[in-house]
Write a protein that binds this DNA or RNA. Structure first.
Length: 351
DNA sequence: AAGCTTCTCAACCGCTCGCGC
DNA sequence: TGCGCGAGCGGTTGAGAAGCT
């Protein structure tokens, strides 16, 4: 039958707290504690506020040892690092920063830190547009999917992909022990910083498409979400056609695509199903082709709820080019990169 | 100096989850 | 066992401050 009725929200005062209210709340909690019951607290403390409001005021402002004012560089680093790892889970991030509240950190991120990072990136971009990736060599035997986690991680610094879960495991030889450098047993390596730079140069928007990532589901057998579960995956079937992508004008090639929703069932089993799409989609010229590609797909057995078709309509689509599994040679990959974009093509708008 | 725009951040809203009844 | 409440959380809002023209 539930508990006693909630506080009287109708008559509860809203808006900014007065100093009198603050001292009433502070005095009461310092004397009696919260008693584990915020709803009953305002009445006992003589406040005409909702318990929820009291809780928020106490936690975010009145609580002892709350730090106000500028964040230090060290705190910036911690926030960025944690945001990159776990996304916008502010309470967890706040737990790592004594004296800071989740609300504070959230506000700081949304108003300053995000812009600060962006500005740093743009400064870097003005010096070299975009920052070059280290030399890349094709290593087909390596599943690139294990690297995606890090890409996912750094999408989150743009605030665009906050729902991704950390990878439960990382393939040996892919990440260094300190997880700071991506490295395969080939000479392919680049730092997270370079990826941040790239991602912020072209922040992910609402959706993304991915080339050549046929092994993606393999690394997520624990059922955790991957970025593919949030976007849609395009597998390029005809490598010889795809090779044109590396040419300076190569986007006019007709490609044969396989489109997948890239999802897993509740048991974590991969239920990716690929639907062949006819060749003739011209990705480079017109985003509508991609939209068409997405909207025309119907795949049984996949939960499609997380796909928002409307978002696709009015947003950019992030195209990820996976050089390892796409079968693109380093020369051809360099050809794309030389155009200034290289690793992805935001909205397919190549400049 | 006035009016407009942008920024900041405290507070609210709405949702999920866990627990009491 | 299931309903409903409370705590906690992340997203969003909007008033006031600051900056700009």
């Amino acid at each position: 039958m539930g508990r006693a009725p909630c506080c009287d929200k109708e008559n509860a005062k809203k808006g900014p707290w007065s100093t009198e209210e603050d001292s009433k709340l502070k005095d009461y909690i310092e004397k009696y504690g919260t008693g584990g019951n915020w709803i009953a607290l305002p009445q006992k403390a003589g406040l005409k506020r909702c318990g929820k409001s009291c809780r928020l005021r106490w936690l975010n402002y009145l609580r002892p040892n709350i730090k106000h004012g500028d964040f230090t560089d060290e705190e910036d680093k911690i926030i960025c690092s944690l945001f990159a790892s776990i996304g916008s889970r502010w309470s967890i991030i706040a737990a790592q920063l004594p004296g800071r509240t989740d609300n504070d950190i959230k506000n700081y991120w949304n108003t300053k830190l995000k812009k600060k990072l962006m500005a740093m990136t743009m400064t870097s971009q003005s010096q070299r547009k975009p920052p070059p990736l280290p030399p890349f060599h094709h290593t087909p035997s390596i599943s690139f999917s294990s690297l995606y986690k890090d890409y996912t991680t750094y999408y989150t610094t743009t605030g665009s992909f906050t729902a991704f879960e950390p990878m439960s495991s990382v393939q040996p030889g892919v990440l260094n022990n300190d997880n700071t450098t991506l490295a395969t047993n080939s000479s392919f390596s680049h730092t997270p910083e370079s990826l941040v730079s790239y991602m912020q140069y072209h922040p992910a928007k609402e959706n993304f498409l991915m080339f050549g990532s046929g092994e993606l589901s393999c690394s997520f057998s624990d059922g955790s979400s991957s970025q593919i579960s949030y976007g849609r995956e395009i597998k390029q079937e005809n490598i010889s056609n795809f090779q044109g992508l590396g040419a300076s004008n190569g986007y006019e090639d007709n490609l044969k695509f396989m489109l997948s929703h890239g999802c897993t069932n509740t048991g974590g089993e991969d239920v990716n199903q690929w639907t062949e799409k006819p060749s003739g989609y011209n990705l480079g010229k017109n985003l509508d082709h991609v939209k068409k590609l997405i909207s025309s797909s119907s795949i049984n057995g996949c939960n499609d709820n997380f796909i928002d078709e409307n978002k696709t309509e009015d947003s950019h689509v992030l195209l990820l080019l996976n050089p390892l599994t796409a079968g693109v040679t380093s020369e051809r990959f360099d050809g794309v990169r030389a155009k200034g974009e290289g690793f992805w093509i935001d909205g397919f708008d190549i400049v």
